[in-house]
Amino acid sequence: MRAISYTRATDVPGAVAAVTNDPGSSFLAGGTTEVDLLRLDVLRPNRLVDINRLPLADIEDRADGGLVIGALARMSEVAQAPGVVERYPMLSQSLLLGASAQLRHMASMGGNLMQRVRCSYYRDPESACNKRVPGSGCSALEGVHRGHAILGTSEHCIATHPSDMAVALVALDAVVQVEGVKGTRTIPVDDFFLLPDDTPEREHPLTPGELITAIEVPPLPMARRSLYLKVRDRESYEFALASAAVALALEDGVIRGVRLALGGVATKPWRAHRAEETLLGQPADEDMFARAAAAELAPAVTRPMNAFKAELARRTVVRALRTAVALRGET
């Protein structure tokens, strides 16, 4: 880790101004990704602006049934907030299935949205990686890529987005509030994550110094019986190989509403629009689930070591949908 200077931010505008005015600086929240990558010499800021004491940790119930979650609320707090557990179980589950209890106490919601990929070439500062050093090449394409993405990839990057929570947020159409020197703006969470395309180094539409202040989760009655299914080698403390966040609205066995997003298989938290379109207005049966899963995975681009992920993702989608139906007490 290079030598760094440290500033403790005492207010949001000050924090934003500090990072905006000092291009070599970064915000420091929970640190669970950032300190790791600093030590690996992957991130090289010369100054950290510690935002942990900013008053951005509240979780507020909105009158319309939605939520506003402060960017500095910790994963563990959000996972157990009554409003989240009751109204958005998929979000609570996605948080609890992520990382470990200790890391969930540390990691903030905003930081979770900003976490970096786990690609072993990204994490190794001497390997070629377009995300770390644009134009240097992608080592994963011909390298070890069992955990890598099959959706949303480009010839420049196939790193999987590692967040579980963000998958639920994408399914829920959450909105990210950011604050910069030019003011406040909101970004739909699906737009908050950029596909690698030919600029894999650019992961978010943020300008330098813009700070996530909150995440809005709009009301969604069908989310009350939603779920997050995570598939991984190890029973706990591992990133997903495939995951699915699902909420269904059924009427006489017919799907009247559906939210579906995938994790572990894509370069960004993956809203399954094709599957959703396939399912809407159709009977909630195994055949439809399989067709929806197949539709979503149709554009998958696999490589030798991660070819299984297409099938695994299909099965994960089917299992999640089936479980969601069972949760509603309708078959």
């Binding site: 786990r118 072993s120 070890v144 955990g147 080698d233 190890r234 029973e235 706990s236 403390y237 591992e238």
Partner: peptide
Amino acid sequence: GRWANAGLGEYLLPVNAD
């Protein structure tokens, strides 16, 4: 010749739940 999963995040040891 590099081990691609040298760290404990990638070389998976059993955890309590396993």
